[in-house]
């Protein structure tokens, strides 16, 4: 189903929604794009993507899980409630929405995580088509359409003065059914709103099937991994900025008579990530780098039949030593 809305009406619609839900929109903070609470402002037009992935709004970098208190001879443990308050996020990109869906089987599978599930079910996902290819990205190579997606509730394509809207879920249908804001549109109008992406790769960088096969074949090739990881400095940038990396650590904070247990991010780039009492299976840097690439293109694929990389390019653009994942994948595909 297709609808359309003008730029100004969209803003009014969001203002109306903010009475019922928390609205997050792209905004600049300290010079960086991120998703912030909506203050009825104009929606930005030149938003490419956020530096910190919106994954952090679902799987938080710092999350209280439970707390305990001891007072007057009693001891009490409370678990942190699952999030419920309704929320709307506008301006998400197709790659990041796909990432949220990729993580769903991880967090809602055998050991369901009430926080991730709660965050997903309380959020209305409003996506926006890309017009420019982000630096370092290779989303189309991993099967993402920058101009279309079904990972949202509603997907917006920008046209002069407004948007053509593709309604995907029932929740999205109800909310965009308000005649005062949205008009009906057609598949024809939707199709003609498709744009040429600026700065895109003319020829696909690699063939994903070959990468997957290469990831399996290359796994035992120590020389290969040593060579490609030589310049890596083991920082966690590529994992902390990645919309699909999801390793975490649990830790406690204690004060007299009370304490809190938290979950925070961890990274396979860190030497201590796999440290155990007598042994560390990933002591060397090349093993850790291999883990990162293999997890995304080999193990995750085996477990969930999809690669765990959405080609957003964050790790490529922000690696301090320009260790380019695209080049590694290209070599694996050979």
């Amino acid at each position: 189903m297709y609808r359309k809305i003008t730029r100004e009406k969209l803003r009014k619609w969001l203002i109306g929604l903010s009475a019922r839900a928390e609205i997050l929109v792209p905004a600049k903070m300290n010079g960086l794009w991120t998703f912030r609470l909506f203050h009825n402002q104009e929606l930005p037009q030149n938003f490419l993507n956020s530096r910190i992935p919106p994954k952090n709004l679902f799987f938080e970098p710092l999350k209280g899980l439970l707390g305990w208190k001891a007072a007057d001879g009693s001891f009490q443990v409370n678990s942190c409630p699952a999030p419920e308050a309704a929320r709307v996020i506008f301006g998400l990109k197709p790659c990041d929405a796909r990432a949220l869906r990729l993580l769903q089987p991880v967090f809602t599978g055998d050991y369901p995580d009430v926080f991730y599930a709660g965050n997903l079910s309380r959020t209305l996902l409003l996506g926006q088509a890309c017009r420019v290819q982000c630096q370092g990205s290779f989303c189309s190579e991993v099967g993402i359409d920058r101009q279309d997606s079904v990972d949202f509730d509603v997907f917006f394509r920008e046209i002069a003065g407004g948007y053509i809207v593709r309604v995907i879920t029932e929740k999205g249908n109800t909310l965009t059914g308000e005649k005062e804001f949205f008009e009906e549109s057609s598949a024809g109008e939707w199709n003609s709103a498709k744009e040429e992406i600026r700065g895109k790769n003319e020829i696909p960088l690699f063939n994903l099937e070959k990468v997957k096969a290469g990831a399996r074949e290359r796994f035992p090739d120590e020389d290969f991994w040593m060579r490609v990881s030589a310049k890596c400095i083991n920082c966690g940038i590529c994992t902390y900025l990645c919309p699909t990396c999801h390793c975490f650590d649990l830790c406690d904070l204690q004060r007299p008579g009370q304490g809190v247990r938290f979950r925070c991010f961890d990274s396979c780039a860190f030497p201590d990530f796999t440290k155990m009492a007598v042994h560390n299976p990933r002591e060397e840097k090349w093993r850790r780098y291999r883990q990162r690439v293999s997890h995304k293109f080999n193990f995750f694929y085996e477990n969930f039949q999809t690669v765990a990389c959405v080609g957003c390019g964050r790790c490529v653009a922000h690696c301090p030593v320009n260790l380019d994942l695209r080049e590694v994948l290209l070599e694996m595909a050979r």
Partner: peptide, 15 residues
């Protein structure tokens, strides 16, 4: 020590 229920890093923190 923050209230554990609030202990979530999110976009609501003040600018």
């Amino acid at each position: 020590l923050p209230d554990f229920g609030q202990m979530t890093k999110g976009p609501t923190s003040p600018d």
